[in-house]
Amino acid sequence: MNFLLAIIIGILYGAGTYMILRRSLVKVILGLIFLGHAANLLIFTIGRLTKGAPAFIPQGAETLAEPYADPLPQALILTAIVIGFGVQAFAIVLFKRTYQTVGTDDLDKMKSTDELK
């Protein structure tokens, strides 16, 4: 499945990159979500995949014998998912607010404060 996941990661990264380069703010947020998924899957895959052996230590045992899934990348991804959600929620609400105030979701019309004369 490595090969397939590598391709999926590539597609998700590609999709995220493409979306984040759009002028519409909603699409940029969608791009952000894509990139989040891609990064999580990347960490997951390069932490090596194990099927059907989660890192649960059975009752009575002190530790686990190989093969079992590496718990560390999973812990990291768990954190990343939750943080990613925080970012998404904030971005969505920020977008709504921006749209109400500025009246557009075109990023190119929001660049004036940064412009060099």
């Binding site: 490595n2 090969f3 996941l5 590598a6 391709i7 990661i9 590539g10 597609i11 998700l12 990264y13 590609g14 999709a15 990159t17 493409y18 380069l21 891609a38 990347l42 895959t45 390069i46 090596r48 890192a55 230590i57 530790t63 686990l64 079992y68 590496d70 718990p71 560390l72």
Partner: peptide
Amino acid sequence: IASGVGLFMTLMVLYITSIDLTSELKRFYT
């Protein structure tokens, strides 16, 4: 640009997963 980024990531994942990994942390945590 997006295809370039995607292609690079795919190649990188394929390369990384082709190397054997021994994680001391995995052992330590369990």
